[in-house]
């Protein structure tokens, strides 16, 4: 699964370059995210602007990372399309993840918060 990776002021910005996060790519996505954590990245923004479809396999990968990061770090999501956003709302994961409309908003909240 192709990811675009950037760093800004110590924040890791991950932008998956796929339209779908399902069981086909979820374990690869999960292991790549775990690699970032293992390499010391603890403040992460995941930009989902390219993703049209996510199912429980994709959600599970992100929940696992959120749990793994725990209180040592922070993770924020941004730029969710309507279909993706509705799945977060349905599963109430929108109450667990901090979700921002823009990448700038997510970055700003990490700098100030």
């Amino acid at each position: 699964m192709k990811l675009n990776v950037a760093r800004k002021d110590g924040i890791l910005i991950i932008t998956p370059q796929v339209k779908r996060i399902d069981a086909n790519v979820a374990s690869d996505f999960k292991s790549k995210l775990i690699d970032f954590l293992d390499n010391g990245d603890k403040i992460i923004v995941i930009n989902l602007s390219k993703v049209d479809f996510i199912d429980s396999s994709g959600l599970g990968a992100m929940v696992l990372i959120l749990r793994k990061i725990g209180t040592d770090g922070r993770i924020k999501l941004c730029k969710l399309k309507e279909g993706v956003s509705s799945i977060f709302e349905l599963t109430r994961l929108d109450e667990v993840f901090e979700i921002h409309k823009s990448e700038e908003g997510a970055l700003e909240s990490l700098k100030t918060g």
Partner: peptide, 11 residues
């Protein structure tokens, strides 16, 4: 409890 599975059937 933030489970990482079990969402599929709920959906």
């Amino acid at each position: 409890s933030l489970p990482d599975r079990g969402y599929g059937l709920y959906i």
